[in-house]
Computed example of a mutant assay.
Amino acid sequence: MRRMIAGLRPLWCLLLVLVATVIIGDLAGLIPAPESIWWVPGVVAVGAVSGAGLQIAPRAKPHSLQLMSCPVRGEWTSLNTPGQRLPSHGTRTLGQWCAVDVLKPTTESTPPLLHHRLRASAPEDYESFGEPVHAMATGTVIRRRHRARDHRARNTWVSRLLMVTVEGLLRTLAGPSALLGNHVVVDHGDGTVAVYAHLQRNSVLPETGARLRVGGVLGRVGNSGNSSEPHLHVQLMDRTRLSTAAGLKLAWHDVILTDELDARLAEFIAEPERSAIKDMPPMGEIFTTPWAEEPGRRE
């Protein structure tokens, strides 16, 4: 039942657009309202049902922890991570139950999370931007997008506010692709599917149908889609369609935790919750991978 309701996501989005159109049209006097006020509860009810429908997500059957290779090389830190809690992003929708966000550790030149300037930071100002992204496991590319622009960070108060309100809503209504930005979806052939999101424009290397080996470079870190600053978002699912997919438990077998914390993320750092996956880096902890950077490989 949950998958069926989640699969109706385009319908819920369409109904919300219609509700918003009716409300705005009535307030602006562009739509003649009926004399009876009973249409108001009806519109509110449709909006409430549609909003609730967008929050319903399927849950995967009981499964073991999926161990895979880390998709980045060198020194990184984690932000929204299953090493802190589940669901890692606060929702199960769109297969995000065990999603991970990673970015390069803070340096003296890293822009602040928020500042009072009028103009937000450019993606090129961040160390994460342009870093190679590697396949976590062998699989086949079944979907890709590579032409979305890399927008500026959302690190001014105005841009952050617009992101969590207007921009976030518009991207949600536009569909998963608008949220993911440039991305690659890889089917591993064993019932697991990986998504690599917010990639750099025109950096996606493999074509749809290409076969990737573990460690092969598939793109570079960007700032496309619903992203506040350049970072990599990865997640593991049980289906190829995001709206009906359930997230799967994921851990990287080749990371080394340093017990060092990223100073810029200090305000978000807390003790991991009971639901956290112990093998994954918790919020704000810097980790490394022993892999050397290697060129893209395909079968």
Rank of each mutant, 00 (worst) to 15 (best):
W38I: 08
A52N: 11
A270L: 06
T140D: 00
A6S: 14
L27T: 01
G191Q: 12
T244N: 05
N226D: 14
A120S: 15
S203Q: 10
P87Y: 05
A292I: 12
R85C: 10
S227W: 00
H231N: 11
S109C: 00
A20K: 09
P111L: 05
C70N: 12
H198E: 08
H253G: 13
L173E: 04
S224N: 02
R147A: 15
K104E: 09
L250H: 09
Q96Y: 03
D262F: 09
I256G: 01
E131I: 00
A135E: 05
Y196T: 04
S203R: 11
W291S: 12
D254V: 14
R73D: 09
D262P: 08
Q66G: 03
G51I: 00
G225A: 04
K61N: 12
M68A: 15
E167W: 07
S203E: 07
L179N: 03
A246N: 07
A245R: 08
A120F: 07
M136A: 14
R143Q: 09
A135R: 07
N182Y: 03
I277F: 00
D262Y: 08
G215Y: 08
E229D: 07
V214Q: 15
T208V: 15
P105K: 07
G47D: 08
P32V: 10
I31Q: 06
V221G: 02
A174H: 05
A153R: 03
S78Q: 09
L118Q: 06
P272A: 10
S88P: 09
H134L: 14
L236H: 06
S121L: 04
G25F: 09
L242N: 02
I5Q: 12
A263Y: 00
G168D: 11
V214M: 14
P34G: 09
T165K: 05
L218Q: 01
P62L: 03
D238Y: 07
T156H: 06
T91H: 04
T91F: 03
G215P: 06
A120L: 02
A48M: 09
R92W: 10
D101P: 03
R220K: 15
G29I: 11
H63Y: 00
R213C: 12
V185M: 09
W12G: 05
L236A: 08
L169P: 04
S243N: 14
I23K: 03
P111R: 09
R264W: 02
V133K: 01
E131Q: 14
P282Y: 01
R149K: 07
N226E: 08
H89T: 03
A210F: 01
R9P: 03
P272H: 10
W291A: 14
L15M: 14
R160H: 06
A263F: 00
V164M: 12
L11D: 04
V195S: 08
G130M: 10
W39R: 04
